[in-house]
Amino acid sequence: MKKITLIAGARPNFMKIAPIIHAIHEAQNQGADISYRLVHTGQHYDKKMSGSFFEQLEIPEPHVNLEAGGGTQAEQTGNIMVRFEQELIVNPADLVLVVGDVNSTMACSITAKKMNITVAHVEAGIRSGDLSMPEEINRMVTDAITDLFFTTSELANENLRQVGIPNARIHFVGNTMIDTLLKQRPNFKAPPIWTDLNLSKQNYIVLTLHRPANVDEASQLKAMLDEIITNTENLPLVFPVHPRTAKILEGLQVRDERLHMIEPLSYLEFNYLVENAKAVITDSGGITEEASIMNVPCLTLRDNTERPETISLGTNELVGTNPENIKPYLQRLFAGDWKTGSSIPMWDGKTAQRIVAVLTSEV
């Protein structure tokens, strides 16, 4: 029996892992000698990650929660490593599979590798070039010790080749986030704000902000919100507020009758809003992927992106972090001059099947 340990540390990780679990179940039903153990590191406490969250994704709850918790970057990484080492001692694995770029991704990769366990990285090779982002360091360190690289784009493949990774270890499989999106799209449901504000299709804008460069400096956040409010004509702005952002907003006194700050939404509710919005304004990487597949205009308030395919092939534009950049992009949007997305290779809902096919042949 080939034993695989799947690692998730934050809510988006489960979106990426859910299709892999489904594909493992399919392989088991077809006679594959493979088993898995789902480990939640507890990196993020999320009150919305209840039993219903796992029911929506159609996956079992994690076999264990390491409850590593928060703290500084070093404290969190160290806690995860200590607890995951104990987990592997009690429950040995043939392969540890990590996804994305959170602290759990790097911490569990290092722990597994030092115990001579094969490491597979889903979303390998992604780079922003911005070393001020903890995620970029996590990506680089993880890929430096990974054995099997599962990539989302040809550019990611090239990034890996440039640091000497042989082609035989690189598997261009696509994007498991899109597997989840396409599977769950028929299940999207309107959140309460839809009826509360009497929203209608393409008659509002979704806003999300959480990156430190945008929200930690109060004057920067206020300037961005002022520009967005000023240049979105008379459309409602629906702003599910990240806890990090909420703390800053409390002292800002940004008020406008069109700005509706609400609690974070479930996956199915949030993507219902995105699918029906006129546009999304965000600093999230994952949302740019989902918006591109749903052909919704996306304005990214960052100076770089690790997902350039959402710009070259999708509906995303890199606006930057200078608030003055926002107006011309919104003018294009309201002029009806936004680009249409085209299909992104391998983002077809079958990525997890390709990953498990490799795992069953190579583990």
Rank of each mutant, 00 (worst) to 15 (best):
S266C: 06
S361F: 02
S284I: 12
P134N: 08
E55G: 11
T111P: 00
A10V: 08
A156N: 10
E26T: 14
E85W: 10
S128K: 02
N103C: 05
M294L: 15
L333W: 03
I165P: 03
P12Q: 04
K47M: 02
A218Q: 12
P264E: 11
V122P: 11
P192D: 06
A335M: 12
G70V: 00
D348H: 13
A74Q: 10
K47W: 00
P134I: 04
G164W: 00
H210V: 00
S35F: 04
T152P: 04
R139A: 01
V319L: 11
G320T: 14
R185V: 09
F172W: 15
E135A: 11
E263V: 11
G286D: 01
N175I: 06
P297R: 08
A335V: 08
R258T: 00
P12V: 04
T282K: 06
V64E: 13
E233G: 00
P92V: 14
I110C: 03
I20K: 10
K278E: 13
A68K: 12
L225S: 02
M133E: 06
G336I: 07
V82M: 12
G349V: 13
N198H: 07
I178G: 12
K339G: 08
A277Q: 02
I355S: 13
R258W: 00
T282Q: 08
S109Y: 02
L235Q: 00
E135C: 08
A27M: 12
S284T: 10
Q331F: 01
T351G: 13
W194H: 02
E324S: 13
L6F: 14
K222I: 07
T142I: 13
I20R: 09
T360I: 15
I355E: 13
T208H: 05
V90G: 05
R244C: 07
L301W: 02
H171Q: 10
A335I: 07
I34F: 08
S219Y: 01
E227A: 13
L268D: 12
D147C: 11
V241C: 02
E61V: 10
R127P: 14
N214T: 04
T77I: 09
R255M: 09
A120N: 10
V363C: 14
A124E: 03
H171R: 04
I126N: 15
D179W: 07
Q43C: 05
K339W: 06
P243A: 01
D46E: 07
I326V: 14
R332S: 13
E309V: 15
Q331E: 15
E123V: 01
K278Q: 14
S109K: 04
P212C: 03
E306L: 03
G125K: 04
Q30S: 09
G9E: 05
I229S: 00
L221W: 04
G100F: 03
A335W: 10
N103L: 03
N198L: 02
E233R: 12
G100V: 04
R244V: 03
